[in-house]
Design a protein around this nucleic acid. Structure first.
Length: 134
DNA sequence: GCCAACGTTGGC
DNA sequence: GCCAACGTTGGC
């Protein structure tokens, strides 16, 4: 079981959109590192859904329901996965909290803010859930 | 809206 | 293969 953070601008697609849709294809990734992370995902892996730009906070948990397949939107060598919501966090966990936290401050989310799909180890994942009050 | 950081592209 | 120029992302 692996853990991930998926970033999305809530103006474009928010966690509540995901809850409403029930499932969504996570495509359009055009960054090799992020693509490789997508390809490392397994069905059943959990991911935190993070709102970039607006909010700058992790807001919910989702799960991978379909492993990486060819991104239909392109001829290039890009991948997509399908995700579904699990449950919202009791309290969102802000980037500020993450940056201040000794366990979380070294996550790729903080070190490289430009990567839209990044891995978390189980300690980091659990720490965020703790900060979220669950 | 600005700009720093980073990734990608393309000329050499 | 190097590196300057450019585009994009995302925090502020």
């Amino acid at each position: 079981m692996k853990y991930w953070i998926l970033k999305s601008e809530p103006d474009v697609y928010s966690y509540s959109d995901l809850v409403k849709d029930g499932k969504v294809t996570w495509d359009g990734i055009r960054n090799y590192q992020a693509r490789n992370n997508l390809r490392a995902m397994k069905t059943g892996d959990l991911a935190l859904f993070y709102h970039s730009n607006v909010g700058k906070e992790a807001v919910g948990i989702c799960k991978i329901v379909k492993e990486a397949y060819q991104d239909a939107g392109t001829d290039g060598d890009w991948s997509a996965v399908d995700i579904a919501p699990v449950k919202p966090l009791k309290k969102p966990v802000t980037l500020e909290q993450i940056k201040k936290d000794p366990i979380l401050k070294n996550t790729l989310l903080v070190r490289n803010s430009r990567i839209s799909v990044s891995p978390l180890n189980s300690d980091e994942y659990k720490r965020i859930l703790t900060l979220a009050g669950s």
